[in-house]
Structure formats: C-alpha cells, structure tokens
C-alpha cells in the first residue's frame, strides 16, 4: 500500500542528494538572515534570547517555502504532475510521498543550520535543549503537511510562489506562533507547565492538517 509513497520519497531524495539544490539554497538563505540580524542589531543577551526563537523560525519557514515551491516545480517540469494524475494509485499515497520528502529535506536543513544559529547567537548548549527536538518536529510537520498540499494547488497557477504564500501563511500561523513560544521556553531554560499542552496542541493540528490533506489530494491532481 505504501509502495507508491516510498517510491516517490526515494525518487525525490535521490534527486535532492544529486543536485543539493533545495538544501543548499535554504541553508545559504538562512545563513544570510542570521548574519544580517547578528551584525545589524546590537542588543543585550536578554533581548537576544527574546528574539532568537522568532528569528530561528523566520529562517525555517522562509527557507521552507523555497523547499515547498521546489518540490512541485520539479513535478511540473516535463509534465510529471500530469503523469502523477495518470498513475493507477490513490492520490493520498502521492501526498504521503511528497510530504515525507519535503519534511525530511527540511529537517535535514534544520539540523545543518541549527549549530550555526547557536554559534551566531552565543547560546548555551544544555541537556534541556533536547526538548527542542519534539518542538522542531511538530512545528515542521505542521508546516510541511499543509505546505505540501497547498504547493500542489499553487503549482497549477502562474504566480505559484505568491499564491502559496497567500494560502499558507494564514493557515499555518498558529502553528508557527506556538512553535516560537515553545522554542523560546527551551532556549531561555524556562520550560513552564504550559509547555506540554502547547506542544500537544501543535501535534493535534499536525494530525488534522495531515489527515485532511491526505483525503483531499486526489482532487488536487485533477485539472
């Protein structure tokens, strides 16, 4: 049943590892954000701790937008999007394959850029930082589960990038805001009792977005 999803995932990752187009562009873009913010604003460490979580997620989501656009732009090339519509498979399987490939690429990029972020903003590494793993996972999955289906919608249009932004931002904003709050708690070392309920809320949104997208993807592939 998952054969199609795995095939699409393997194909996407193979193409990405071969070209490194998405990861490299996302990494350079995020690096620029960090460099510009670091050298433009001279703020105290306390203020830096306040803005750092937001900055980190700005880098993640703006770079993620590039990854999402790239994912379906590849399919549009040479008519592969039409080939997908012709496949004798459930559209949900295609969604799962594309979702996992976008998510894995984005998580790999996050793993590559996070150490740079730590160095630039002189943050202290501690065991408590491991709490960032579920936060990054939940926030990223929310972003990519919705982004994958909306990217498939937007790719049919001429202004793909603008439309994707217009569709994605309003819907994904709650997840990003909660993820910034959670990241702030972990980075400042002030994990309150509100942490886990909020993380659970992000997880619940992830499940809703993923399930709806899985069910609706068949309709997206049609002309």
């Amino acid at each position: 049943m998952m054969r199609t999803a795995i095939s699409i995932l393997k194909k996407d990752l193979r193409m990405e590892f071969r070209s490194k187009e998405s990861i490299l562009a996302m990494w350079i873009f995020s690096l620029l954000i960090f460099v510009i913010f670091n050298f433009t604003f001279e703020v105290s460490r306390l203020v830096m701790l306040e803005i750092a979580p937001g900055l980190l997620w700005v880098a993640f989501v703006f770079s993620g937008m590039f990854g999402l656009n790239q994912s379906f732009a590849l399919e549009k090339e040479n008519g592969n999007l039409r080939a997908m519509a012709l496949m004798p498979v459930d559209g949900g399987q295609i969604y799962v394959g594309k979702f996992f490939s976008v998510t894995i690429i984005m998580l790999m990029f996050e793993a590559l850029i996070f150490p740079i972020f730590i160095i630039f903003y002189d943050l202290q590494l501690s065991l408590g930082m491991f709490r960032l793993i579920p936060v990054l996972l939940a926030g990223t999955i929310g972003f990519t589960s919705l982004g994958t289906i909306l990217s498939a919608v937007a790719v049919h249009t001429r202004n793909q990038q603008i439309l994707l932004s217009l569709l994605l931002w309003p819907l994904v904003s709650p997840i990003i805001i909660w993820s910034v709050t959670l990241t702030g708690m972990v980075l400042s070392g002030e994990v309150t009792e509100a942490f886990y309920p909020l993380l659970l809320r992000v997880g619940a949104f992830d499940v809703i977005f993923f399930t709806l997208s899985y069910m609706l993807f068949d309709f997206i592939l049609e002309d």
């Binding site: 194909k11 090339e77 040479n78 039409r82």
Partner: peptide, 10 residues
C-alpha cells in the same frame, strides 16, 4: 504526448 513524464536529474 509532447510532455516527457521523465525526470532530467535521474
């Protein structure tokens, strides 16, 4: 068709 349905990077 005139569309290839192929991936250039494979």
């Amino acid at each position: 068709s005139h569309e290839m349905f192929l991936y250039g990077n494979l």
